[in-house]
Measured scan of single mutants.
Amino acid sequence: MSIQHFRVALIPFFAAFCLPVFAHPETLVKVKDAEDQLGARVGYIELDLNSGKILESFRPEERFPMMSTFKVLLCGAVLSRVDAGQEQLGRRIHYSQNDLVEYSPVTEKHLTDGMTVRELCSAAITMSDNTAANLLLTTIGGPKELTAFLHNMGDHVTRLDRWEPELNEAIPNDERDTTMPAAMATTLRKLLTGELLTLASRQQLIDWMEADKVAGPLLRSALPAGWFIADKSGAGERGSRGIIAALGPDGKPSRIVVIYTTGSQATMDERNRQIAEIGASLIKHW
């Protein structure tokens, strides 16, 4: 067993022997301040990774656009098919120029040779490549099948209805392509620590998230040296922004954090800054 596999296998073990965790309302004060600064709703939840206990939450059962955070769930569904012998990570998928959609920095470079399922998941999570996500959605049967996968996990809230990039439209009061912070946090925890996926697939999923290259201005910008984070960000229309993450000190994750916002007129930089400040408060009061 590799060191990384050992780390993920012992996530519940280490967490069980940690000192009790206590909620700190100071972080919620910052979440509410972010709402004021952005002029928009902000949803927040913080779960203990081992027990699933909610440590703090704000608007945990209000719907927010998922945006690209759905790509972690998508690759979880792909990995479940791999575990069941219905898919192979090494299978190569070929596609054409007509398949390319807006923001496809990886797939646009491989029109000639195609990409493997493993490479597509890596591109979808680490670079948020939209064509990679659409190609992977095709392998599982489309958005409705991802929703069905989530329902089978016990998540009857999260739903995907459309493809990239239309799913980022974020129309107010439109339930399409949305989740709730509580539902997303619980589902992410199941994917990373539950028995739904094999140990190898859980490790692969967290490795992809740990290698995320496009979430630097968010929670990662607030992390002290030595902290662990595996995350996936999302951005959408109407001032929408979000991030889902597993993080913790001492090089291992111990909490799940989900943050979503929508309806702001603020710039992307300002949305990023507010999420980073929430992260800084979380870490300060850990």
Rank of each mutant, 00 (worst) to 15 (best):
H24C: 12
P25W: 05
E26Y: 07
T27I: 08
L28Y: 03
L28Q: 05
K30F: 15
K30G: 15
V31W: 11
E35D: 04
D36I: 12
Q37N: 06
L38I: 10
L38A: 01
L38C: 01
G39L: 12
G39S: 07
A40Y: 03
R41L: 11
I45P: 10
I45G: 09
L47K: 01
D48N: 14
L49D: 01
L49A: 00
G52Q: 12
K53F: 07
I54T: 09
I54S: 06
I54N: 06
L55K: 09
E56S: 11
S57L: 05
P60M: 05
E61T: 03
E61C: 01
E61D: 04
M66Y: 05
M66C: 08
M67T: 14
S68N: 11
S68R: 02
T69G: 09
T69W: 06
V72N: 11
V72G: 03
V72H: 08
L73F: 03
L73E: 04
L73R: 01
L73T: 02
L74F: 01
L74M: 06
L74N: 03
C75K: 00
G76F: 07
G76P: 04
G76C: 02
A77Q: 12
A77L: 13
V78M: 13
S80E: 04
S80A: 13
R81L: 13
V82Q: 03
V82I: 04
V82F: 05
A84K: 04
G85F: 07
E87H: 05
E87M: 10
L89S: 04
L89Y: 00
R91V: 02
I93G: 00
Q97I: 01
Q97Y: 04
Q97C: 00
N98Y: 15
N98M: 10
D99Q: 13
D99A: 10
L100D: 04
V101C: 04
E102L: 00
Y103L: 11
V106I: 09
K109H: 06
K109V: 06
L111I: 07
M115Y: 06
T116S: 11
T116G: 02
V117T: 07
R118N: 13
L120Y: 12
L120V: 06
S122A: 11
S122F: 11
A124E: 02
A124Y: 04
I125P: 08
T126Q: 08
T126L: 13
M127F: 09
M127Y: 08
S128M: 10
N134C: 03
N134W: 03
N134V: 02
L135N: 04
L135T: 05
L137D: 02
T138G: 12
T139D: 09
T139Q: 11
G141E: 03
G142E: 00
P143S: 07
K144E: 08
T147P: 03
T147S: 09
L150M: 13
H151S: 10
M153L: 09
D155L: 11
D155S: 09
H156P: 10
H156D: 07
V157G: 10
L160G: 12
R162Y: 01
R162N: 00
W163C: 12
W163F: 13
E164V: 05
L167T: 00
E169Y: 00
A170H: 00
I171P: 00
P172Q: 08
P172V: 04
N173H: 07
D174N: 04
D177H: 08
T178A: 14
T179L: 14
P181H: 02
A183G: 07
A185G: 10
A185L: 12
L188C: 15
K190I: 15
L191R: 12
G194R: 00
G194K: 00
L196Q: 06
T198W: 01
L199C: 03
L199Q: 10
R202K: 06
R202T: 10
Q204A: 05
L205N: 06
D207N: 02
D207S: 03
D207P: 00
M209N: 02
E210L: 11
E210V: 13
D212M: 09
D212A: 13
D212I: 00
K213I: 00
K213R: 05
V214I: 01
A215R: 15
P217K: 01
P217E: 14
L218W: 15
L218K: 15
L219N: 15
R220T: 03
A222M: 13
A222F: 13
A222W: 15
A225C: 08
A225N: 04
G226V: 06
F228P: 13
F228R: 14
I229N: 09
I229W: 10
A230C: 13
D231P: 10
K232F: 15
K232L: 12
K232A: 14
G234V: 10
A235L: 14
G236P: 15
G236F: 15
E237V: 00
R238Q: 05
G239H: 00
S240K: 15
G242M: 08
I243Y: 15
A245W: 04
A246C: 08
A246Y: 10
L247S: 12
G248A: 06
P249M: 03
D250V: 12
G251L: 08
G251T: 13
P253V: 07
S254I: 05
V258C: 13
V258Y: 07
I259P: 09
I259C: 11
Y260V: 12
T261L: 00
T261R: 13
T262A: 06
M268L: 11
D269M: 12
E270K: 15
E270L: 02
R271S: 13
N272E: 09
R273W: 13
Q274I: 12
Q274H: 13
I275W: 11
A276H: 14
I278P: 11
I278C: 12
G279K: 14
A280L: 13
A280H: 14
S281P: 11
S281H: 12
L282I: 04
I283G: 11
K284T: 05
H285P: 02
